[in-house]
Amino acid sequence: MKNRKLIFNYRWIFFVIPVLTFTSFVYVNPILSTLLYSLRKWDYLHMGNFNGFANYISVLSSKYFFESLLNNLIIIITVIPVVIIGGLFFAQFIYLKIPGYKYYNFIFFIPVVLPDIIVAKIFTTLLNKTGPINIILTKIGLGFFAIDWFGNPRFSLYSIIMTIIWKSVGFTMILFLARLTTIDYSIYEAAKIDGASDMQIFRYISIPMLKNIIQIAIVLQLISLTSFLFNYIYVMTQGGPGFSSTVLEYFIYINAFKYQDIGISSASGLFLILITGFLVYFYLFTNKKQER
């Protein structure tokens, strides 16, 4: 009997081993390799000897590395407030059943599920220097708005930001709306009968209810805006012109596959690992606090 119990207790290993094998191979192995690669000398895709922290020194003395980090930061501080406030705005009014709310609920869902590559591609063809949007702007007398959206280093990053906002505002809306629908609607009706304005209802009922999910949405956005931007950048600007729209993730990519320097690529990759680690820790902490 005792023996049987022991077998029962260790049965979990068979359930968990496959998933651990896959994740170790696809996640742990590359991260450890990145660490190893970053300490080596590289001669085009061939690994050489250890050369200490030379790769890190080159990364930290590269002004393009910091330009990429700065671009990440600009994307984060412009996208997150708009996406959170926009999501709250849409979610609140759809929840309050403004005229046409069912239609809006359906339409705003579409950009969320469109593949990011497709969104990026269509925005690029529409916002081309000689593209249809610019032609229309010129025709209706707004020629000064007809800028070179992706080809001008002053605007390229902001064109990407605009695209990201357009695609992700519905995502936060769905998150917030899902939470709002768990609230008893009679609370709102009671507040309305008591003469509370829309703004007061929003401030004193919705926001406290949504506090945790707003935190989660911010962390999720932080993670996707540092680690999952490649598709947008690759399709829309390839990081250019120059490095004007390169982000950390893209910096890692061009160093590996354009300049073929795995050392530099891995050393900058380590910074991304550290940032991700910090954000994941933050996410777990937020979630834990919510469980209490």
Binding site: L20, P30, I31, L45, I223, S227, F228, I262, V280, Y283
Partner: peptide
């Protein structure tokens, strides 16, 4: 173990692709 598997969800695909590419090559 669950926290470990869960955390992997947030790691950049670009980041893991480069070492995997070298190994696969």
């Amino acid at each position: 173990l669950y926290t470990f598997v869960f955390s992997c969800m947030f790691i950049s695909i670009m980041l893991i692709s480069i070492p995997l590419f070298m190994q696969y090559k």
